[in-house]
Design a binder for these strands. Structure first.
Length: 257
DNA sequence: CTGGGGACGGGGCCC
DNA sequence: CGGGCCCCGTCCCCA
């Protein structure tokens, strides 16, 4: 599992009680077919947006658990450090989100590479062997062609990419309603929809509306006769990769894929 | 148990 | 270079 999704677990059970806010904006639900809410959206949400840039610097240091890194997630959760707690005031839910455990096998991949200076995040993930830091400090200064994240072992080929990645650690976009923090404004915007109940993306087939375009896309698969993901053994198709995987690993194809 | 929906995250691309 | 948006993908929960 490449992403920090795993981390979500912790708050999966304590989701904010969206139901309360839900539908406040029922009117909005009018469901505009795939409306681009971009502007409209931002307009109404801006109110809810909080660009807590000021926290950035602060967050940097602790960097701590904002990034449990792939598999080690559980570890982190157990030790919620300080940082995020303030960062997002929500301490409750957000610290879990993180940024980027690279691809599969994060542990293996990461452990050895950890060269970040910032203790915290990766620290628990792997043994403290990364003394090899001497190099990194600042990506730019590093002799390496890559820009290294000081919060995690990730490295990028461009400063812009690194900066964007760093946001996943600093989570500058904070929801004023629940305090949850996000790395990007549009993520926050999407999150805010969970509070407002706005669902700008509607299915042309059944008119069902969704707050998230990706979810609509997934939903559209359910209308398709032939789903996107097909079992190589029985040819059965599924709307989601996860369903195909479940299918594969639990029966049809005795071979786990 | 399976399918579907909800909520998110990250990389990449475009402006 | 930065912001915004899209696409793809994943996890969790529920019916």
């Amino acid at each position: 599992m490449p992403r920090s999704f795993l981390v979500k677990k912790y708050f999966a059970k304590q989701k904010p009680n969206y139901s309360e806010l839900e539908y406040q904006n029922d009117s909005l639900l009018e469901r505009f077919p795939l409306a681009e809410l971009s502007s409209a959206d931002s307009t109404c949400f801006t109110a809810g947006l909080v660009w807590d840039l000021s926290v950035l610097p602060t967050l940097y240091l602790p960097a701590s658990q904002s990034e449990p890194s792939a598999t080690s997630v559980p570890l982190d959760l157990s030790s919620p450090s300080s940082l995020s707690s303030n960062a997002s005031s929500s301490g409750e839910e957000d610290e879990g989100r993180t940024s980027d455990p690279p691809s599969p096998e994060p542990v293996h991949t990461y452990a050895p590479r950890q060269r970040m200076k910032c203790t915290g995040v990766m620290a628990h993930v792997s043994p403290p062997e990364e003394e090899e830091e001497g190099e990194r400090e600042t990506p730019a200064t590093a002799a390496r062609p890559a820009f290294l994240c000081k919060h995690c072992p990730k490295e990028y080929t461009s400063l812009g990419a690194l900066k964007m990645h760093i946001r996943s650690h600093t989570l500058p976009c904070v929801c004023t309603t629940c305090g949850k923090a996000f790395s990007r404004p549009w993520l926050l915007r999407g999150h805010i929809r969970t509070h407002t109940g706005e669902r700008p993306f509607s299915c042309p087939h059944c008119n069902r509306a969704f707050a998230d375009r990706s979810n609509l896309r997934a939903h559209l698969q359910t209308h398709a006769e032939v789903k996107k993901y097909q079992c190589g053994v029985c040819s059965r198709t599924f709307s989601r990769m996860s369903l195909l995987q479940k299918h594969s690993s639990s029966g049809c194809c005795s071979t786990s894929v």
